[in-house]
Nucleic acid binder design. Structure first.
Lengths: 267, 267
DNA sequence: AAACCGGTTTCATTATTTGAAACTTGGTTT
DNA sequence: AAACCAAGTTTCAAATAATGAAACCGGTTT
Protein backbone atom coordinates (compact mmCIF):
# COMPACT_ATOMS: atom_id res chain seq x y z
CA UNK A 1 0.00 0.00 0.00
CA UNK A 2 0.80 3.63 0.09
CA UNK A 3 3.43 4.66 -2.38
CA UNK A 4 5.82 6.82 -0.44
CA UNK A 5 4.95 9.77 -2.60
CA UNK A 6 1.28 9.78 -2.91
CA UNK A 7 -0.30 12.65 -1.10
CA UNK A 8 -2.37 13.92 -3.96
CA UNK A 9 -1.33 16.87 -5.96
CA UNK A 10 1.01 18.26 -3.35
CA UNK A 11 2.94 15.02 -3.15
CA UNK A 12 3.36 14.91 -6.88
CA UNK A 13 4.57 18.47 -7.04
CA UNK A 14 7.13 17.78 -4.36
CA UNK A 15 8.26 14.74 -6.29
CA UNK A 16 9.05 17.06 -9.16
CA UNK A 17 10.90 19.35 -6.80
CA UNK A 18 13.07 16.48 -5.63
CA UNK A 19 13.70 15.53 -9.19
CA UNK A 20 15.06 18.96 -10.02
CA UNK A 21 17.14 18.98 -6.86
CA UNK A 22 18.58 15.59 -7.73
CA UNK A 23 19.99 16.89 -10.98
CA UNK A 24 22.36 19.09 -9.06
CA UNK A 25 22.45 21.57 -11.92
CA UNK A 26 20.04 23.71 -13.88
CA UNK A 27 17.88 21.45 -15.97
CA UNK A 28 15.69 21.83 -19.03
CA UNK A 29 12.05 20.93 -19.10
CA UNK A 30 12.62 18.23 -21.65
CA UNK A 31 15.24 16.59 -19.46
CA UNK A 32 12.75 16.40 -16.66
CA UNK A 33 10.10 15.10 -18.97
CA UNK A 34 12.36 12.38 -20.30
CA UNK A 35 12.73 10.79 -16.87
CA UNK A 36 9.32 11.62 -15.50
CA UNK A 37 6.23 9.47 -15.22
CA UNK A 38 4.03 12.49 -15.66
CA UNK A 39 2.60 13.39 -19.05
CA UNK A 40 3.93 16.52 -20.62
CA UNK A 41 1.25 19.04 -19.71
CA UNK A 42 1.03 17.75 -16.18
CA UNK A 43 4.71 18.05 -15.59
CA UNK A 44 4.66 21.41 -17.30
CA UNK A 45 2.06 22.77 -14.95
CA UNK A 46 3.87 21.49 -11.89
CA UNK A 47 7.03 23.19 -12.98
CA UNK A 48 5.10 26.39 -13.63
CA UNK A 49 3.45 26.30 -10.27
CA UNK A 50 6.67 25.58 -8.43
CA UNK A 51 8.37 28.38 -10.28
CA UNK A 52 5.60 30.82 -9.44
CA UNK A 53 6.02 29.77 -5.87
CA UNK A 54 9.77 30.35 -5.97
CA UNK A 55 10.39 26.76 -5.08
CA UNK A 56 12.06 26.58 -8.45
CA UNK A 57 13.89 29.34 -10.29
CA UNK A 58 13.74 29.73 -14.04
CA UNK A 59 16.59 31.07 -16.09
CA UNK A 60 14.93 32.47 -19.21
CA UNK A 61 18.27 32.89 -20.91
CA UNK A 62 19.18 29.25 -20.80
CA UNK A 63 15.66 27.94 -20.33
CA UNK A 64 16.57 25.94 -17.30
CA UNK A 65 15.09 25.34 -13.90
CA UNK A 66 16.88 25.01 -10.62
CA UNK A 67 15.77 24.81 -7.04
CA UNK A 68 14.59 28.17 -5.81
CA UNK A 69 15.50 30.62 -3.11
CA UNK A 70 12.31 30.10 -1.19
CA UNK A 71 13.76 26.79 -0.14
CA UNK A 72 16.75 28.50 1.36
CA UNK A 73 14.47 30.75 3.40
CA UNK A 74 12.33 27.86 4.54
CA UNK A 75 15.29 25.69 5.35
CA UNK A 76 16.70 28.34 7.58
CA UNK A 77 13.53 28.12 9.61
CA UNK A 78 13.74 24.34 9.65
CA UNK A 79 17.35 24.40 10.68
CA UNK A 80 16.74 26.77 13.57
CA UNK A 81 13.49 25.20 14.57
CA UNK A 82 13.74 21.50 14.31
CA UNK A 83 17.38 20.59 14.44
CA UNK A 84 19.93 20.36 17.18
CA UNK A 85 22.07 22.98 15.48
CA UNK A 86 21.02 26.12 17.35
CA UNK A 87 21.41 24.44 20.70
CA UNK A 88 24.65 22.77 19.79
CA UNK A 89 26.24 25.70 18.03
CA UNK A 90 28.26 27.25 20.86
CA UNK A 91 29.48 23.86 22.03
CA UNK A 92 30.52 22.79 18.57
CA UNK A 93 32.32 26.06 18.12
CA UNK A 94 34.22 25.54 21.34
CA UNK A 95 35.01 21.94 20.51
CA UNK A 96 36.29 22.85 17.10
CA UNK A 97 38.50 25.50 18.56
CA UNK A 98 39.81 23.14 21.21
CA UNK A 99 40.69 20.25 18.93
CA UNK A 100 41.74 22.24 15.88
CA UNK A 101 40.04 19.85 13.51
CA UNK A 102 36.85 19.75 11.51
CA UNK A 103 33.76 19.02 13.59
CA UNK A 104 30.45 17.69 12.28
CA UNK A 105 27.01 17.67 13.77
CA UNK A 106 24.51 15.27 12.27
CA UNK A 107 21.06 13.84 12.75
CA UNK A 108 19.35 10.78 11.42
CA UNK A 109 16.89 11.53 8.64
CA UNK A 110 15.04 8.41 7.68
CA UNK A 111 17.86 5.99 7.12
CA UNK A 112 20.43 8.55 6.20
CA UNK A 113 22.77 10.87 7.97
CA UNK A 114 21.89 14.51 7.54
CA UNK A 115 24.71 16.90 8.29
CA UNK A 116 23.31 19.76 10.29
CA UNK A 117 26.38 21.81 11.01
CA UNK A 118 30.07 21.83 10.44
CA UNK A 119 33.01 23.77 11.77
CA UNK A 120 36.24 23.98 9.91
CA UNK A 121 39.13 24.55 12.22
CA UNK A 122 42.79 24.82 11.42
CA UNK A 123 43.46 23.56 7.97
CA UNK A 124 40.08 22.50 6.66
CA UNK A 125 39.54 19.01 5.38
CA UNK A 126 37.93 19.68 2.05
CA UNK A 127 35.45 16.90 1.81
CA UNK A 128 31.93 15.82 1.05
CA UNK A 129 30.04 17.27 3.92
CA UNK A 130 28.22 20.55 4.41
CA UNK A 131 25.09 21.50 6.30
CA UNK A 132 22.12 20.03 4.48
CA UNK A 133 24.11 17.32 2.80
CA UNK A 134 23.04 13.75 3.34
CA UNK A 135 25.31 10.77 3.60
CA UNK A 136 25.11 7.05 4.24
CA UNK A 137 24.60 5.86 7.81
CA UNK A 138 26.44 2.55 7.65
CA UNK A 139 29.85 3.92 6.76
CA UNK A 140 30.19 7.20 8.58
CA UNK A 141 31.21 7.74 12.16
CA UNK A 142 28.15 9.77 13.06
CA UNK A 143 25.86 7.36 11.26
CA UNK A 144 27.14 4.31 13.07
CA UNK A 145 27.06 5.79 16.56
CA UNK A 146 23.48 6.91 16.04
CA UNK A 147 22.43 3.49 14.85
CA UNK A 148 24.21 1.89 17.77
CA UNK A 149 22.10 3.74 20.29
CA UNK A 150 18.78 3.46 18.57
CA UNK A 151 16.37 0.98 20.11
CA UNK A 152 16.55 -2.44 18.54
CA UNK A 153 13.61 -2.40 16.20
CA UNK A 154 14.23 1.15 15.02
CA UNK A 155 17.85 0.22 14.37
CA UNK A 156 16.83 -2.89 12.50
CA UNK A 157 14.48 -0.89 10.29
CA UNK A 158 17.27 1.49 9.41
CA UNK A 159 19.82 -1.26 8.87
CA UNK A 160 17.54 -2.91 6.37
CA UNK A 161 17.47 0.26 4.35
CA UNK A 162 21.22 0.57 3.97
CA UNK A 163 22.66 0.05 0.54
CA UNK A 164 26.06 -1.29 1.67
CA UNK A 165 27.69 0.20 -1.35
CA UNK A 166 31.45 -0.35 -1.08
CA UNK A 167 33.25 3.00 -1.15
CA UNK A 168 36.69 1.90 0.01
CA UNK A 169 38.39 -1.30 0.98
CA UNK A 170 37.36 -0.64 4.59
CA UNK A 171 33.65 -0.14 3.99
CA UNK A 172 31.42 -2.48 5.98
CA UNK A 173 29.62 -4.39 3.29
CA UNK A 174 26.88 -6.31 5.04
CA UNK A 175 24.22 -5.97 7.70
CA UNK A 176 26.04 -8.61 9.72
CA UNK A 177 29.30 -6.70 9.73
CA UNK A 178 27.45 -3.55 10.63
CA UNK A 179 25.61 -5.22 13.54
CA UNK A 180 28.92 -6.47 14.93
CA UNK A 181 30.39 -2.99 14.67
CA UNK A 182 27.33 -1.48 16.36
CA UNK A 183 27.81 -3.87 19.26
CA UNK A 184 31.38 -2.70 19.70
CA UNK A 185 30.24 0.90 19.59
CA UNK A 186 27.56 0.29 22.19
CA UNK A 187 30.25 -1.23 24.35
CA UNK A 188 32.67 1.67 24.07
CA UNK A 189 30.19 4.50 23.90
CA UNK A 190 31.76 5.93 20.78
CA UNK A 191 32.89 4.91 17.33
CA UNK A 192 35.31 5.50 14.49
CA UNK A 193 35.22 5.90 10.78
CA UNK A 194 38.22 3.94 9.59
CA UNK A 195 38.39 5.28 6.04
CA UNK A 196 35.12 3.55 5.36
CA UNK A 197 33.61 6.30 3.27
CA UNK A 198 36.58 8.13 1.77
CA UNK A 199 40.17 6.94 1.63
CA UNK A 200 42.42 8.89 3.97
CA UNK A 201 39.53 10.32 5.97
CA UNK A 202 39.07 9.11 9.53
CA UNK A 203 36.97 10.32 12.44
CA UNK A 204 35.83 9.70 16.02
CA UNK A 205 32.15 10.06 16.63
CA UNK A 206 30.05 10.43 19.76
CA UNK A 207 26.30 10.03 19.99
CA UNK A 208 24.15 12.71 21.57
CA UNK A 209 21.56 10.91 23.62
CA UNK A 210 18.76 12.49 25.61
CA UNK A 211 18.24 11.71 29.27
CA UNK A 212 15.38 9.45 28.28
CA UNK A 213 17.74 7.55 26.00
CA UNK A 214 16.55 8.91 22.69
CA UNK A 215 19.21 9.49 20.06
CA UNK A 216 19.19 13.18 19.27
CA UNK A 217 22.16 13.26 16.93
CA UNK A 218 25.87 12.77 16.84
CA UNK A 219 29.04 14.73 16.54
CA UNK A 220 32.44 13.85 15.23
CA UNK A 221 35.96 15.09 14.87
CA UNK A 222 37.38 14.39 11.43
CA UNK A 223 40.94 14.27 10.25
CA UNK A 224 43.14 12.56 7.71
CA UNK A 225 45.50 9.60 7.94
CA UNK A 226 48.21 12.02 6.90
CA UNK A 227 47.81 14.07 10.05
CA UNK A 228 46.91 11.56 12.71
CA UNK A 229 45.60 8.06 13.32
CA UNK A 230 42.84 6.39 15.28
CA UNK A 231 44.79 6.50 18.51
CA UNK A 232 45.32 10.21 18.02
CA UNK A 233 41.62 10.75 17.48
CA UNK A 234 40.78 8.65 20.50
CA UNK A 235 42.44 11.30 22.63
CA UNK A 236 39.50 13.55 21.79
CA UNK A 237 36.97 11.18 23.30
CA UNK A 238 36.79 12.92 26.69
CA UNK A 239 36.15 16.35 25.24
CA UNK A 240 33.70 14.89 22.75
CA UNK A 241 31.85 13.20 25.57
CA UNK A 242 31.79 16.40 27.52
CA UNK A 243 30.50 18.36 24.54
CA UNK A 244 27.80 15.80 23.88
CA UNK A 245 26.73 15.98 27.50
CA UNK A 246 26.49 19.75 27.37
CA UNK A 247 24.39 19.60 24.25
CA UNK A 248 22.10 17.05 25.85
CA UNK A 249 21.72 19.28 28.86
CA UNK A 250 20.88 22.35 26.80
CA UNK A 251 18.53 20.34 24.64
CA UNK A 252 16.46 19.38 27.65
CA UNK A 253 14.30 22.46 27.51
CA UNK A 254 14.02 22.36 23.77
CA UNK A 255 11.46 20.16 22.19
CA UNK A 256 12.42 18.11 19.20
CA UNK A 257 10.36 16.13 16.83
CA UNK A 258 11.37 12.52 16.81
CA UNK A 259 12.38 11.44 13.35
CA UNK A 260 12.96 7.83 14.15
CA UNK A 261 9.84 6.48 15.71
CA UNK A 262 7.10 5.73 13.30
CA UNK A 263 4.00 7.26 14.79
CA UNK A 264 3.01 5.86 18.15
CA UNK A 265 1.17 8.68 19.76
CA UNK A 266 1.49 7.04 23.11
CA UNK A 267 3.93 4.95 25.04
CA UNK B 1 -6.17 39.73 -10.07
CA UNK B 2 -3.88 36.95 -9.00
CA UNK B 3 -3.48 36.64 -5.30
CA UNK B 4 0.21 36.12 -4.79
CA UNK B 5 -0.44 32.68 -3.47
CA UNK B 6 -2.89 31.11 -5.76
CA UNK B 7 -1.47 28.20 -7.65
CA UNK B 8 -4.14 25.74 -6.78
CA UNK B 9 -3.67 23.16 -4.15
CA UNK B 10 0.09 23.28 -4.20
CA UNK B 11 0.12 27.01 -3.59
CA UNK B 12 -2.19 26.64 -0.66
CA UNK B 13 -0.12 23.90 0.89
CA UNK B 14 3.00 26.01 0.57
CA UNK B 15 1.16 28.86 2.20
CA UNK B 16 0.65 26.61 5.20
CA UNK B 17 4.32 25.70 5.13
CA UNK B 18 5.28 29.36 5.26
CA UNK B 19 2.90 29.87 8.09
CA UNK B 20 4.55 27.19 10.18
CA UNK B 21 7.99 28.55 9.32
CA UNK B 22 6.90 32.03 10.33
CA UNK B 23 6.13 30.88 13.84
CA UNK B 24 9.75 30.19 14.45
CA UNK B 25 8.89 27.53 16.97
CA UNK B 26 6.93 24.30 17.12
CA UNK B 27 3.28 25.10 16.76
CA UNK B 28 0.01 23.38 17.57
CA UNK B 29 -2.64 22.67 15.02
CA UNK B 30 -5.09 24.90 16.78
CA UNK B 31 -2.67 27.81 16.68
CA UNK B 32 -2.40 27.45 12.95
CA UNK B 33 -6.12 27.14 12.61
CA UNK B 34 -6.72 30.30 14.61
CA UNK B 35 -4.84 32.42 12.13
CA UNK B 36 -5.69 30.53 8.99
CA UNK B 37 -8.28 31.25 6.33
CA UNK B 38 -8.71 27.56 5.69
CA UNK B 39 -11.51 25.60 7.28
CA UNK B 40 -10.48 23.09 9.87
CA UNK B 41 -10.47 19.89 7.85
CA UNK B 42 -8.76 21.54 4.92
CA UNK B 43 -5.95 22.87 7.05
CA UNK B 44 -5.79 19.55 8.82
CA UNK B 45 -5.23 17.68 5.59
CA UNK B 46 -2.57 20.09 4.42
CA UNK B 47 -0.68 19.65 7.62
CA UNK B 48 -1.03 15.89 7.34
CA UNK B 49 0.20 15.87 3.78
CA UNK B 50 3.14 18.12 4.50
CA UNK B 51 4.07 15.98 7.47
CA UNK B 52 3.92 12.81 5.38
CA UNK B 53 6.17 14.53 2.93
CA UNK B 54 8.64 15.51 5.64
CA UNK B 55 8.18 19.14 4.81
CA UNK B 56 6.86 19.40 8.33
CA UNK B 57 7.86 17.36 11.34
CA UNK B 58 5.39 16.32 14.00
CA UNK B 59 6.32 15.94 17.63
CA UNK B 60 3.75 13.49 19.02
CA UNK B 61 4.84 14.18 22.56
CA UNK B 62 3.99 17.85 22.48
CA UNK B 63 1.60 17.66 19.56
CA UNK B 64 3.39 20.32 17.61
CA UNK B 65 4.52 20.83 14.07
CA UNK B 66 7.72 22.40 12.87
CA UNK B 67 9.38 22.71 9.52
CA UNK B 68 10.85 19.43 8.40
CA UNK B 69 14.21 18.04 7.50
CA UNK B 70 13.33 17.54 3.86
CA UNK B 71 13.60 21.29 3.53
CA UNK B 72 17.15 21.20 4.78
CA UNK B 73 18.03 18.61 2.15
CA UNK B 74 16.32 20.53 -0.60
CA UNK B 75 17.81 23.81 0.43
CA UNK B 76 21.25 22.36 0.25
CA UNK B 77 20.59 21.65 -3.40
CA UNK B 78 19.21 25.14 -3.91
CA UNK B 79 22.15 26.71 -2.21
CA UNK B 80 24.67 24.84 -4.30
CA UNK B 81 22.71 25.11 -7.49
CA UNK B 82 21.20 28.49 -7.75
CA UNK B 83 23.17 30.80 -5.54
CA UNK B 84 26.51 32.49 -5.82
CA UNK B 85 27.73 30.71 -2.71
CA UNK B 86 29.62 27.77 -4.21
CA UNK B 87 31.44 30.02 -6.65
CA UNK B 88 32.16 32.69 -4.08
CA UNK B 89 33.14 30.41 -1.25
CA UNK B 90 36.91 30.31 -1.65
CA UNK B 91 37.07 34.05 -2.25
CA UNK B 92 34.95 34.84 0.75
CA UNK B 93 37.06 32.57 2.85
CA UNK B 94 40.21 34.34 1.74
CA UNK B 95 38.66 37.75 2.26
CA UNK B 96 37.53 36.89 5.72
CA UNK B 97 40.95 35.64 6.63
CA UNK B 98 42.59 38.74 5.21
CA UNK B 99 40.42 41.31 6.95
CA UNK B 100 39.80 39.44 10.19
CA UNK B 101 36.18 40.51 10.33
CA UNK B 102 32.83 38.94 9.58
CA UNK B 103 32.04 38.69 5.88
CA UNK B 104 28.59 38.33 4.35
CA UNK B 105 27.47 37.20 0.95
CA UNK B 106 23.94 38.08 -0.07
CA UNK B 107 21.55 38.04 -2.99
CA UNK B 108 18.37 39.88 -3.71
CA UNK B 109 15.28 37.75 -3.25
CA UNK B 110 12.21 39.63 -4.33
CA UNK B 111 12.59 42.87 -2.45
CA UNK B 112 14.59 41.46 0.39
CA UNK B 113 18.17 40.61 1.10
CA UNK B 114 18.82 36.91 1.41
CA UNK B 115 22.03 36.04 3.19
CA UNK B 116 23.68 33.24 1.30
CA UNK B 117 26.88 32.76 3.19
CA UNK B 118 28.79 34.15 6.12
CA UNK B 119 32.28 33.82 7.48
CA UNK B 120 33.09 34.64 11.03
CA UNK B 121 36.66 35.72 11.45
CA UNK B 122 38.50 36.79 14.55
CA UNK B 123 36.04 37.60 17.28
CA UNK B 124 32.66 36.99 15.69
CA UNK B 125 30.04 39.69 15.66
CA UNK B 126 27.08 37.86 17.08
CA UNK B 127 24.25 39.31 15.10
CA UNK B 128 21.13 38.70 13.10
CA UNK B 129 22.51 37.12 9.98
CA UNK B 130 23.05 33.52 8.97
CA UNK B 131 22.79 31.72 5.67
CA UNK B 132 19.13 31.53 4.73
CA UNK B 133 18.12 34.49 6.81
CA UNK B 134 16.38 37.36 5.09
CA UNK B 135 16.73 41.01 5.92
CA UNK B 136 15.55 44.38 4.69
CA UNK B 137 17.17 45.83 1.57
CA UNK B 138 16.84 49.53 2.37
CA UNK B 139 18.89 49.51 5.55
CA UNK B 140 21.65 47.01 5.03
CA UNK B 141 24.92 47.54 3.23
CA UNK B 142 24.49 44.65 0.89
CA UNK B 143 20.88 45.57 0.20
CA UNK B 144 21.65 49.13 -0.76
CA UNK B 145 24.56 48.37 -3.06
CA UNK B 146 22.47 45.82 -4.90
CA UNK B 147 19.63 48.26 -5.36
CA UNK B 148 22.04 50.92 -6.52
CA UNK B 149 23.21 48.83 -9.43
CA UNK B 150 19.88 47.44 -10.49
CA UNK B 151 18.42 48.95 -13.65
CA UNK B 152 16.08 51.83 -12.98
CA UNK B 153 12.70 50.20 -13.27
CA UNK B 154 13.73 47.08 -11.41
CA UNK B 155 15.15 49.26 -8.65
CA UNK B 156 11.99 51.33 -8.53
CA UNK B 157 9.88 48.22 -8.19
CA UNK B 158 11.96 47.04 -5.28
CA UNK B 159 12.05 50.45 -3.62
CA UNK B 160 8.29 50.60 -3.65
CA UNK B 161 8.17 47.39 -1.72
CA UNK B 162 10.36 48.56 1.15
CA UNK B 163 8.71 49.06 4.49
CA UNK B 164 11.00 51.81 5.76
CA UNK B 165 10.57 50.63 9.27
CA UNK B 166 12.85 52.69 11.52
CA UNK B 167 15.26 50.40 13.36
CA UNK B 168 17.72 52.98 14.66
CA UNK B 169 18.13 56.72 14.57
CA UNK B 170 20.20 56.30 11.39
CA UNK B 171 17.70 54.26 9.41
CA UNK B 172 16.74 55.79 6.08
CA UNK B 173 13.03 56.31 6.46
CA UNK B 174 11.75 57.21 3.01
CA UNK B 175 12.05 56.28 -0.63
CA UNK B 176 13.48 59.74 -1.30
CA UNK B 177 16.26 59.34 1.24
CA UNK B 178 17.02 55.91 -0.13
CA UNK B 179 17.16 57.16 -3.73
CA UNK B 180 19.63 59.85 -2.74
CA UNK B 181 21.77 57.28 -0.96
CA UNK B 182 21.64 54.97 -3.96
CA UNK B 183 22.93 57.78 -6.13
CA UNK B 184 25.89 58.26 -3.84
CA UNK B 185 26.58 54.56 -3.91
CA UNK B 186 26.44 54.46 -7.69
CA UNK B 187 28.94 57.30 -7.69
CA UNK B 188 31.38 55.59 -5.35
CA UNK B 189 30.92 52.05 -6.42
CA UNK B 190 30.37 50.84 -2.87
CA UNK B 191 28.30 51.63 0.18
CA UNK B 192 28.11 51.61 3.95
CA UNK B 193 25.71 50.59 6.62
CA UNK B 194 25.96 53.39 9.16
CA UNK B 195 24.21 51.65 12.07
CA UNK B 196 21.03 51.75 10.04
CA UNK B 197 19.81 48.32 10.99
CA UNK B 198 21.37 47.64 14.37
CA UNK B 199 23.00 50.13 16.70
CA UNK B 200 26.74 49.69 16.88
CA UNK B 201 26.92 47.56 13.75
CA UNK B 202 28.54 49.05 10.67
CA UNK B 203 29.71 47.62 7.37
CA UNK B 204 31.16 48.32 3.94
CA UNK B 205 29.45 46.59 1.06
CA UNK B 206 30.43 45.94 -2.53
CA UNK B 207 28.13 44.81 -5.30
CA UNK B 208 28.95 41.79 -7.43
CA UNK B 209 28.01 42.71 -10.97
CA UNK B 210 28.28 40.48 -14.01
CA UNK B 211 30.13 41.61 -17.13
CA UNK B 212 26.76 42.31 -18.72
CA UNK B 213 25.89 44.61 -15.83
CA UNK B 214 23.50 42.32 -14.01
CA UNK B 215 23.59 42.44 -10.22
CA UNK B 216 24.53 38.97 -9.04
CA UNK B 217 24.82 39.71 -5.34
CA UNK B 218 26.85 41.66 -2.86
CA UNK B 219 29.40 41.12 -0.17
CA UNK B 220 30.25 43.07 2.91
CA UNK B 221 32.66 43.34 5.78
CA UNK B 222 30.93 43.96 9.07
CA UNK B 223 32.26 45.32 12.30
CA UNK B 224 31.22 47.31 15.33
CA UNK B 225 31.62 50.95 16.23
CA UNK B 226 33.57 49.72 19.24
CA UNK B 227 36.26 48.23 17.07
CA UNK B 228 36.51 50.58 14.13
CA UNK B 229 34.69 53.27 12.18
CA UNK B 230 33.62 53.99 8.63
CA UNK B 231 37.06 55.26 7.65
CA UNK B 232 38.56 52.07 9.00
CA UNK B 233 36.15 49.99 6.99
CA UNK B 234 36.82 52.03 3.88
CA UNK B 235 40.36 50.70 3.93
CA UNK B 236 38.88 47.34 2.94
CA UNK B 237 37.40 48.70 -0.27
CA UNK B 238 40.28 47.62 -2.52
CA UNK B 239 40.31 44.04 -1.32
CA UNK B 240 36.53 43.93 -1.45
CA UNK B 241 36.60 45.18 -5.01
CA UNK B 242 39.19 42.61 -5.90
CA UNK B 243 37.17 39.83 -4.30
CA UNK B 244 34.03 40.91 -6.09
CA UNK B 245 35.88 40.91 -9.40
CA UNK B 246 37.17 37.41 -8.81
CA UNK B 247 33.71 36.18 -8.00
CA UNK B 248 32.35 37.80 -11.14
CA UNK B 249 35.06 36.16 -13.18
CA UNK B 250 34.38 32.72 -11.73
CA UNK B 251 30.66 33.19 -12.11
CA UNK B 252 30.99 33.75 -15.84
CA UNK B 253 30.84 30.07 -16.68
CA UNK B 254 28.10 29.41 -14.21
CA UNK B 255 24.55 30.09 -15.18
CA UNK B 256 22.28 31.81 -12.73
CA UNK B 257 18.62 32.35 -12.75
CA UNK B 258 17.71 36.01 -12.66
CA UNK B 259 15.59 36.75 -9.65
CA UNK B 260 14.92 40.33 -10.45
CA UNK B 261 13.27 40.42 -13.80
CA UNK B 262 9.64 39.70 -13.53
CA UNK B 263 9.60 37.48 -16.54
CA UNK B 264 5.88 36.73 -16.39
CA UNK B 265 4.93 33.70 -18.32
CA UNK B 266 1.87 35.50 -19.46
CA UNK B 267 -0.67 38.14 -19.07
C1' DA C 1 -23.36 13.87 33.51
C1' DA C 2 -23.53 17.61 30.58
C1' DA C 3 -20.95 20.89 28.19
C1' DC C 4 -16.48 21.77 26.20
C1' DC C 5 -12.26 21.50 23.53
C1' DG C 6 -8.71 20.01 20.41
C1' DG C 7 -8.22 16.89 17.11
C1' DT C 8 -10.07 13.55 13.54
C1' DT C 9 -13.29 11.38 10.17
C1' DT C 10 -17.33 11.20 6.94
C1' DC C 11 -19.39 12.05 2.59
C1' DA C 12 -22.02 14.45 -0.89
C1' DT C 13 -20.83 18.55 -3.53
C1' DT C 14 -17.66 21.23 -6.04
C1' DA C 15 -13.66 22.70 -8.04
C1' DT C 16 -9.21 21.17 -9.71
C1' DT C 17 -6.44 18.37 -11.90
C1' DT C 18 -5.59 15.61 -15.79
C1' DG C 19 -3.73 14.39 -20.44
C1' DA C 20 -4.70 13.41 -25.49
C1' DA C 21 -4.48 16.23 -28.98
C1' DA C 22 -3.69 20.36 -31.18
C1' DC C 23 -0.99 24.42 -31.68
C1' DT C 24 3.06 27.74 -31.60
C1' DT C 25 7.68 29.06 -31.81
C1' DG C 26 12.34 28.96 -33.32
C1' DG C 27 15.69 26.62 -35.44
C1' DT C 28 17.38 23.23 -39.23
C1' DT C 29 17.13 20.77 -43.34
C1' DT C 30 15.75 20.03 -48.09
C1' DA D 1 11.30 29.59 -48.96
C1' DA D 2 8.81 25.64 -48.07
C1' DA D 3 8.94 21.61 -45.29
C1' DC D 4 10.38 19.73 -41.23
C1' DC D 5 11.38 19.03 -36.48
C1' DA D 6 11.79 19.46 -31.59
C1' DA D 7 10.77 21.95 -27.48
C1' DG D 8 7.58 24.28 -25.30
C1' DT D 9 2.62 25.85 -24.59
C1' DT D 10 -2.51 25.87 -24.72
C1' DT D 11 -7.21 23.72 -25.13
C1' DC D 12 -11.07 21.35 -23.25
C1' DA D 13 -14.04 17.52 -21.90
C1' DA D 14 -13.52 13.65 -18.68
C1' DA D 15 -11.68 11.93 -14.43
C1' DT D 16 -10.21 12.87 -10.07
C1' DA D 17 -9.08 15.03 -6.06
C1' DA D 18 -10.06 18.74 -2.89
C1' DT D 19 -13.50 20.77 -0.11
C1' DG D 20 -16.01 21.85 4.27
C1' DA D 21 -20.44 21.38 6.99
C1' DA D 22 -21.47 18.35 10.13
C1' DA D 23 -20.69 14.69 13.01
C1' DC D 24 -17.56 12.11 15.93
C1' DC D 25 -14.04 10.91 19.59
C1' DG D 26 -11.46 10.96 23.86
C1' DG D 27 -10.14 13.68 27.37
C1' DT D 28 -11.03 17.75 30.81
C1' DT D 29 -13.71 21.01 32.98
C1' DT D 30 -17.96 22.77 34.95
Amino acid sequence: MARVTGDGTVGKALEVLDQVAAFGRPVRFSELLAQSDFPKPTLYRFVQTLTNQQMLAYDPERQTYSTGLRLVRLAHAAWEQSTLAPVARPHIEALSKAVGETVHLAQLDNAQVLYIDKRNAGQPVEMYSQAGKVGPAYCTGVGKVMLAFLDDDAAETVIEQQSFHVFTEHTLDSAAALRAELNDIRQNGYGFDREEHEPGIICVAMPIVSETGRVLGALSVTSTTGRTNLAGLEAFVPILKETATKITRDAQNWSFPDYNTKETTGI
